[in-house]
Design a protein around this nucleic acid. Sequence first.
DNA 1: GAGTTTGAAACT
DNA 2: CAGTTTCAAACTC
Length: 764
Amino acid sequence: MDVVSPELNSLLPDEIMDTEAIAMEEELPVEHLAAPPQSEPEPPQVPMETEVPEIVSLCPATTSMQMSSASTDAQCSTSSGTQLLLNLPKISRVTVPANHQLIINKVASAPAADGKSPGTAVLKPEGQKLLVAGLSKTGQPIMLALPHTWNKPATTQGTGDAKAQPTQIKMLTTVGKPVIAVSSASQLMGGSSTLQAQQLKTLQITKKPTVSTAGPMITKLIITKALNNKGLSSPASVAPVVTGRVVTQSTPVTPPRTITIGETSTVPQNTSGNSKVAISPLKSPSKLTVVSVASQSPNSPQKSVTLPLNVALGQQILTVQQSAATSPAKAGTSQPNTQTVKPVQTVGGVGTSQFKTIIPLGTPPNVQQIQVPGSRFHYVRLVTATTGSTTAQSGGSTNTNPSIQQAKPVMMNAAVRMSVPIVPAQSIKQVVPKPFTSAAQVVTTSQTPQRLIMPATHLPQIQPNLTSLPPGTVLAPAHGSGNMGYAVLPAPYVTQIPQPAFVTLTSSSTFSTATPIQTQARLSLNGLSTSEATSRPRKPCNCTRSQCLKLYCDCFANGEFCNNCNCVNCFNNLDHESERLKAIKACLDRNPVAFKPKIGKGKQGESDRRHSKGCNCKKSGCLKNYCECYEAKIMCSSICKCMGCKNFEESPERKTLMHLADAAEVRVQQQTAAKTKLSSQISDLLTRTTPAVTSGGGKLPYTFVTKEVAEATCDCLLEQAEQAELTTQPQAVAERLILEEFGRCLRRIISFAGKAKTDCPINC
DNA sequence: GAGTTTGAAACT
DNA sequence: CAGTTTCAAACTC
């Protein structure tokens, strides 16, 4: 993975970050914190970018409250009945939708140990660190509880600096409704030299998600779905993800769920709460952020607010899988070695353009990726490194042990683009319960075991254009800067993962890998519309000499893993991650925008798509698919260096070709329609009880020989046979009588058929 | 399906 | 940056 400096990281464009909204820096004045999304730094210039990052507005028509940093306790009731209970050292901004409850538990301000982080606070031990309640569509509260030790910085962090390292937790809630934006920063010293500010953001999602689960459950990880909102006026994406332990009561109907983010250090092996990750679908309007969590300490009071499991996520469903409803045992107390991660089943992601998945990381976290075929978004699950020893040594540097770094993506039905802020590896380490004894984690699903994660390998630092980060790029924090890092995952990353929607993480030193279902959708077809991209399966490559690690390979160039290709000696897969990452880096070194779509919008005023570099054709006249412009169905532009170009608006050759192409397409469509129709008719004919095939406007005689008619005929013949038997007729006579009867039956059938034909000439 | 052509990517 | 080579897709037969 490539690593970029923290500075770049901080500038991570919204497009990549997929986070939006309110930046919450602890030290920032409230006003600043409350600043609108627009205040975020602009992404690096990307001339041809086809996707324009959208900013999500966090404060819809809901109640908005701002508190000064001095605020300690606050209660607020909105006119709509929303209640807010806040007890935070600092709350930059809280927005609560009507009828939603937001409860933030007490947080006592405490002096920073090193005094370098003024304004930081330590959460009261007795109180939950932080409870953020969001409301689902149903009005049920969603809560996050931070354990006391939550967010303890690891002392061995690679960066090793004592600077406060803010961690962001962003959470996206439902669209439209939930508009809870809470940002709070608290820092816990936890005896470590580093301070970490936790930022929690709740983002509003434009779409209302559908919730899928209900019932008791303990969930560690929640994965959300992503969606492609490109071009949608109201994109929906949701991905509330909560990691950590979820304890729920079980009310059959939308039981509230409490999500607690806690530290394991307090109660190490107890809870399953391994740190997990949250995920967020990204992309426009709906941006989602993920939350990393640690396990919760059983002892810590569950002050959590109940949160409805079902969080509507637009059309996407965020599902937190619950443990079997029948096994309440899992709830609460225990589950020492298993973590149940339930990715949310996403529905309907649309794959289109290239997207980038960003995973924050302090130290190389394990990442679970989930990709939804056909979707442009990917889900990424960050899995904290396991227990102790292994993770401890990383110290922020790349882990060289392959076994530890095994990362396997998890494929889902939808792809998600997201950015996930992560808890520093060290904090994770402390937080993670025993279950994870090694970096490698076994992911099992209720359905199928899965292997996951992408190693956040530390690679030589590069400073690529952020907007052009290739898949697999990891943005790591720079020295002395925050803990937050981002890993840019290629959409394909997730490709080679088993389908199961739910994943359970269990401790294990090795990965159990389910046979990956390799479904890969081309996320981005330079210039093609979403529908085009999704409808057209990616063509398998046939590389023989490039190992699929050069841009010659379309799969690689599109940031995808080879899947069902015909390539030889392919390295574009998870088994050759290191080589692949190196190749990506090499490509970026040569061309920082190598992985960006070549077809994008022109400069301002140029609404049409155009090739970012222009073609260089010499013999094809730019009217063959050799020409990248022509292939993308766009005309050549002034930046093209082609010779004898015929691919321009008024070109007769081009028009002719277009007409031919259109005609061909029409023919194909007609043929397809005809085949479909014929198939339908045949099927109908075969299944119809009473045949009604028409010929010349009437029914054919045989069409009257329905089942009923046949049975009646048989009855007549049997009756005749019985008569013959009763009268002791010779066999020959009996047979003759039966045949005569059969003849009469046939005549009657034919007679009726003719009559029907006359009475109803038109297919009746 | 084999061979040729083409132009982007990679290399020098 | 320009020229050359390599490569894989597009195309032709």
